[in-house]
Design a protein around this nucleic acid. Structure first.
Lengths: 246, 246
DNA sequence: GCGATGCTTCGGCAACCGCCGAAACGATGA
DNA sequence: TCATCGTTTCGGCGGTTGCCGAAGCATCGC
């Protein structure tokens, strides 16, 4: 009776994500890269014309944005908020089945390492976060995350581009990892770490997927010394690293 | 092509919320109280039999739980995680329309004060949070929230039941308020404050709605001294206060 | 200029799903 | 015991919506 209006707005957004094809599109985009309509069609598993309709709806709802370039049309999520919403829904879906469910390696590559819009997720990201926490550079919890003084000094010396403190985007947002159920790092720090990992070759994008391939260098960085402090030969711009193709 | 599985799980949950009747049911339940099937039917705006079907689906998905009592059947959200998901989706829906939308007093009572599962939201809650922050008891930000030392002392002296530090539930989780777009307080502190506000008569539940009525006492508490430190005549158990009927 | 490619619009088909009413079930109270 | 109330199950109807293929626009390369 009351609050009918809220229910309607809630339902319209949810029903948008509630279609399998559209959900697949959003999943594909939640890697953070811009993809063409054709690529998205193959991700969605439906024809080009159908995909076009879906994309129009998503765009009208403001969940994705369009970028015309040449004869291609690139689509990307309209912002981190949308990505966060997707991950939240994902987490809630995971709690969903009270029945037994095969917890097995469903998309093992994704569980291992994947990009989550503008930062990393999966086992690799979670372990990275824990290493940093062990060394006293971070504190992560349900309540959020923050960088300690030692951490600030470390990241600064390490050459991470954290950007000015300005802007409303939080420095360190902690994300409950959908597959691992432990925390990984988001926010500006998460973005910088992702760019750094790509720049140093710790991880590499896998074409046509959110999955990331963890290189030997990446393994070594995590297992061994982690964050030796030689500066990079060439500083990596976060945006440049993130938008480079697979 | 890849990550099809993720898309499917995402879609199943989202499509569950994507129906207007079910969304209304979830909205009604997100006040935190348990409601009967009949009440939910009137909230949903559909017949009893239809509602029954919806409830079965929601329950099977693990979003709500059932409690049989006499010849009634009580339904409630299965946990704070579900409530958080709903609020997140709500927030994302709000960013949705890039077009002009009437920002007017849509459900004014709800914007003023409402319960959000186990804590308060709306203007009242936001202002309360800001008062506490001004006085240096809290720090709230995108990254999360935490209670300062002064705050700990204050809340302890004030007699808030914060519960042991144990348990995985965060003490102070900050929530972006759906209507106000500013922060309000969740987590264990949010629950304790809600119980306190109910116990002291600052706010009262409105029957059949998430809305809360702010009493004169409540106004006074907020505007004037706020948190005079006379102890309550009778300590209020959080759960007791929260589950008391309207 | 021309064809080829990428994407969108349109029309029509089919399946899904939410809705209701009638009937069955279970619990309560006289 | 029997009526009553709250809730669920069942069967059937109707609207929505996702799907495709064909045709229409753009853009690029030759």
């Amino acid at each position: 009776m009351t609050s009918l209006a809220s229910g309607i707005t809630l339902a319209t957004t949810a029903s948008l994500i509630g279609d399998v094809a559209r959900a697949n599109i959003l999943c594909a985009l939640s890697g953070g890269q811009a993809l063409t309509a054709g690529e998205l069609a193959s991700h969605a598993g439906v024809g080009a014309s159908t995909t076009s309709g879906h994309l129009a709806k998503l765009a009208e709802a403001g969940l994705i944005t369009t970028l015309k370039q040449g004869r291609h049309r690139y689509y990307r999520l309209s912002g981190p908020k949308v990505a966060a919403m997707i991950e939240t829904l994902m987490a809630a879906s995971d709690l969903t089945p009270p029945r037994h469910r095969p917890v097995g390696p469903r998309d093992e590559a994704l569980r291992r390492a994947r990009s989550c819009y503008d930062h990393m997720a999966g086992r690799f990201a979670v372990e990275l976060a824990e290493r940093l926490e062990e060394r006293g550079f971070l504190v992560l919890s349900d309540e959020g995350g923050y960088v300690t003084e030692a951490g600030s000094a470390f990241f600064a010396r390490f050459g991470l581009e954290l950007g000015a403190a300005a802007g409303r985007r939080p420095l360190c947002r902690c994300c409950l990892d959908w597959s691992e159920r432990r925390f990984h790092i988001g926010g500006r720090l998460g973005t910088a770490l992702f760019a750094h990992a790509l720049g140093r070759g710790w991880v590499a994008r896998v074409a046509g997927s959110r999955a990331l391939r963890v290189t030997r260098t990446g393994e070594a960085a995590l297992a061994g010394g982690l964050f030796r402090c030689e500066p990079l030969d060439r500083p990596v711009s976060a945006w440049e690293a993130l938008t480079a193709s697979a």
